[in-house]
Write a protein that binds this DNA or RNA. Structure first.
Lengths: 290, 290
DNA sequence: ATCCATGTGTGATAAATATTTCACAATTGT
DNA sequence: ACAATTGTGAAATATTTATCACACATGGAT
């Protein structure tokens, strides 16, 4: 139960009555633009609140801090905590499980990854990338590595329904140079490369780039070296409590891209989907819906 | 347009390419819990990012600040401005995009899916499933369908490092009956089946079940018919604003399972991972870390 | 394989700032 | 007028910042 839910702001307000005139003036000034002003030097705060330096020093100790540095440090800690969970309602996700259960720890990390990742994405770049990916006049190559080829294939399977003229390339295979023979200016490569970044993928990207193709890169927070060649690159945070990295956030981006591209060409997509349905019916691949 | 819209966060990201390895590490650490960590003393920041003091000093100047104090002061100014501005909408994920943007709509849906899915999972069943999946005495078959085989393979690739004695089966291939010849009592099948549920997958599940194998099923909220044969089944919510369903939540469950199983057998996994690393080094598949 | 340029950490140090505390005078309200 | 509060100016301390020289590692080039 060591959980300290009292913010410094709360503590100040609570003590407001015990403070003297100048101290109250100072306290209110701190609350005025909280917490920024408390994070500057003591002198600046004093001038800002129009009180003297000793008044600040006195009040901070009156509030129970050992000194101004400690006060600041706790303010920062509070800020940290606040930035971490703006939607902290769900401290557990699998409510039946203890909060230390892997289900909750892992999900926490993934949600956090999503938040960080989305916060850093430039929507204009994303839209531009979707437009490129949806342009059927350009041949689209989708490239994945040892692990990421599963994501690449997932994207490929969906894009296949949306548009023609695309190829799935696995950078770890030794057949990819053949594909590049036909690639050229105006074509688009969607490349997946997360750590550990693969040599083959980089080589492939270099060749594609040399031929004038555009590159859309999905990578991680440390960014594959391919990003220097890429027209658009999107980096996901991928850290989770595991010996491996998480692909969930990248998957989210991929699916969002599919949804966006599909929106751009809804008429065509619809027709293609219906054709596909019909073919599935004929092959009896799926169960009739019951 | 005297409006200074460039946040320090933006500036850092923009300059990310010009930074060296240690500097980038520092920059990412700053962004990690922004802006709190940048408001503490330089020394603390250096320790936090695990870089040396001069590195911090060098980088802030590289970013165009006269010194660390100036950097901090601008950070505080930014925080002040942000707190003043009431248009801090926390209901969007990609803050730069309008709330109606696909990035935000899609992410909303996925988070919602995760919440619903996790809320309905029985942790005991999950743990039991992980124990089964980690039991190297039982042969493990991982089965996916037309789309889901990408998830199946993702799971397979990771489990392969954790334990021996496993096979990836694609239910849409016509070679799967051969695999079943060897399957028997005590073996485990992890099966992925989401709508539209595949006939082949059901048949495979029936045969596996008839031979006394245990089945762990990953399916969607409407549950594949396989669930009647399954020892444990986990259903994800998969609805998103798209013509397709989302696999992101299922991916989350899969990754969590990998992390859990890995925990059960950490010693063995560690040894296998090190062997794998060594083999990778020899094949030069990956770039050395720069 | 060897060498070189680059980047990085260490430890030390000087300079700059910040904090804390004094004593005392000025102010204020009672 | 008294007691409490506050500001002033200053000084002592403590901390922080900015550099430096140097050793060491690394990756790339020859």
């Amino acid at each position: 139960m060591a959980e300290e839910t009292l913010t410094i702001s709360d503590r100040i307000q609570h003590k407001l009555d015990d403070l003297t005139r100048a101290e109250r003036q100072l306290a209110l000034s701190i609350l005025e633009n909280y917490p920024a002003s408390g994070l500057g030097p003591l002198t600046a705060l004093a001038k800002d609140a129009d009180v003297s330096v000793p008044t600040v020093a006195r009040m901070v100790q009156k509030l129970g801090f050992k000194g101004y540095p400690e006060f600041q440090s706790e303010l920062r800690e509070e800020l940290r905590a606040k930035a971490k969970n703006p939607i902290a309602k769900h401290d557990t996700w699998a409510e039946a499980a203890p909060s230390g259960h892997m289900l909750n720890r892992f999900t926490d990390a993934v949600i956090d990854n999503i938040r960080h990742t989305l916060g850093q994405i430039d929507p204009a770049a994303f839209d531009a990338a979707c437009a490129l990916a949806g342009d059927a006049d350009r041949h689209l190559y989708i490239v994945g590595g040892r692990i990421t080829h599963t994501l690449a294939e997932y994207l490929f399977l969906h894009m296949q329904v949306i548009r023609p003229n695309l190829t799935h390339v696995q950078s770890t295979s030794n057949s990819w140079p053949h594909y590049l023979l036909n690639a050229g200016k105006g074509d688009v490569f969607i490349i997946f490369d997360v750590r550990r970044y693969e040599n083959n993928t980089l080589k492939l990207a270099e060749m594609a780039h040399a031929r004038g193709a555009q590159i859309i890169l999905f990578t991680d927070q440390w960014r594959s070296p391919v990003h220097q060649l890429a027209t658009h690159s999107f980096s996901s945070r991928i850290v989770v409590p595991s010996a491996w990295d998480s692909a969930a956030t990248t998957m989210l981006l991929v699916e969002t891209m599919v949804a966006s591209v599909q929106n751009l060409h809804w008429e065509g997509t619809k027709a293609r989907m219906e054709e596909l349905e019909e073919m599935f019916d004929q092959t009896r691949l799926f169960r009739k819906f019951t």
